[in-house]
Design a protein around this nucleic acid. Sequence first.
DNA 1: TGCTAAAGTGAATATTTATTCGCTTATATT
DNA 2: AATATAAGCGAATAAATATTCACTTTAGCA
Lengths: 191, 191
Amino acid sequence: MVKLKDDKKVTQIFQATVKLVARKGLSGITMGDISKEAGIATGTLYVYFKSKDELINALFAACRENSVQVSFKGYQPNRPFKLGFRQIWLNILRYKLQNFEETVFLEQCYHSPFITAATREKALQLAAPFYELMKRGQQEQLVKSVDSGLLLTFVMGTMNELIRQTHYSGIPLSRSRINTAFDLCWDALKA
Amino acid sequence: MVKLKDDKKVTQIFQATVKLVARKGLSGITMGDISKEAGIATGTLYVYFKSKDELINALFAACRENSVQVSFKGYQPNRPFKLGFRQIWLNILRYKLQNFEETVFLEQCYHSPFITAATREKALQLAAPFYELMKRGQQEQLVKSVDSGLLLTFVMGTMNELIRQTHYSGIPLSRSRINTAFDLCWDALKA
DNA sequence: TGCTAAAGTGAATATTTATTCGCTTATATT
DNA sequence: AATATAAGCGAATAAATATTCACTTTAGCA
């Protein structure tokens, strides 16, 4: 073999795409835009991805995996539930804040014609650990014993909206604001 | 004057657009698709809207106004706060459920290049009554005295996510599930 | 009822955008 | 160092899409 594909380039392409989608929406970006933003030639995109569809699907999958992996960083099941939950909640919040563009990208994708059913299905499976977490809270009788899907809906819904609001309002997310938001969330869940 | 523009046609165009966007995303629709779905000729679209941009902006504004108007239907300020809040919460929920496509459309728009700053600004102003509502709850000491923007973030975030989840999971939103969801929400807000 | 101005049409055109391709450059292997 | 092979390039091409336009139909008004 001779010259190998460059993993860094994939990262460049992904970053450029995510950035542009957050700014202009999925409908507003072209392969030309992406290549320009990534600092490579348009043709090079096709060395790494067969088509725009494939690029978007691959990026979607990568973003999903990223965000799940980050969530459980530092989670220790032996510590009290509320502490662990808080840790994960903060992990997600921090990640989404620092990667706002990724969050927007994922949202945009959900209703786009780019994402295939298979990609969507895979994304769903990734949520399993969060269901487990809710179940633990319920077993310890700290969390309301209602459908865990509903609980997660609440946790993620507030998180996403908080990120969005923070970004658009320009109100910085101070430590005390974060604590307040967490308290709202916890009060909703707690048994 | 002779032949007048038909208000019904605007409705047709809007309905078609909303339907298609919910199915294929903003990026997946063309003027051709819209005209076909609306049952009119492509050229006719340009009788009603100067461009695709203008169409999307007009539709966005219309959707926003719709959803706000519906929210306060039947709200009586003299009745107890929680009842009123519940009424509004249910109004929004019902409306969003029945008009899921509109919800998706609005979401997609927020990060699209179609929506102009002016359109966005107008949307923000429409939220004023909701801020008033939160303030009332706080004055009566029924609601936590934290930034009302944060409270609304919570209320709307959970609502949107609930709608989304309901639609995709296929789990029907039974009366008891609705009550549970409301309780989660109220527990978060209550002082 | 006939006239007229605007709505309505959809094929033609202009524009935008994805994708390809002939070429150049870089780098693993010998 | 020579070579072979794939990455990288960006102008050229193909495909998709917005917009226009010459024409037909419709409906208000005399």
